[in-house]
């Protein structure tokens, strides 16, 4: 028979192993549900099926496309190939303005309309999110 110490050790190791597997499983599972994908307006145009999940869209705010009323902000995100209309009711970051890069998070209504739940703040005037840079093809 094995000694008590060996048994304890085996028990301990099994416990650790089991908890590691459980942890990894849990994390991966909820990653799948909570990940937000990033897409450019062109990628959305080429979608075959509309996704119900939350996504992020990035590009430039089109010149003279911003309209504001008391409960909504409307504007157009463009990657200079395709555009998408965005409606948004929420806090607008300071560096949001026409002709600047923007990242919006929310849901697609159809291929031309996006309802944003969040506009991401960027801290630096000259800073362009890498995603946006790629989306507009380094223009």
């Amino acid at each position: 028979m094995y000694g008590k110490k060996v048994k304890l050790r085996v028990l301990f190791l099994t416990l650790i192993l089991a908890s590691v597997i459980l942890t990894v499983f849990l994390i991966l599972q909820s990653l799948k549900e909570n990940v937000v994908y990033f897409q450019s307006p062109s990628e959305i145009k080429s979608l075959i099926e509309l996704n119900k999940k939350k996504i992020r869209i990035g590009g430039m705010v089109k010149e003279q496309s911003v309209f504001i009323n008391s409960n909504e902000v409307n504007f157009i995100i463009t990657d200079f190939k395709n555009e998408i209309n965005v409606t948004y009711s929420g806090a607008v970051p300071n560096l949001f303005s026409e002709g600047k890069g923007v990242v919006a998070e929310g849901f697609l209504k159809d291929k031309n309309y996006f309802s944003a739940t969040k506009i991401l703040a960027k801290h630096d005037e000259n800073y362009m999110p890498p995603e946006v840079k790629e989306a507009i093809g380094d223009k």
Binding site: L31, N34, V35, V36, Y37, F38, R56, E131, E134
Partner: peptide, 8 residues
């Protein structure tokens, strides 16, 4: 490109 938000 993805991001992982607070709900996760």
């Amino acid at each position: 490109k993805i991001s992982v938000g607070p709900p996760f």
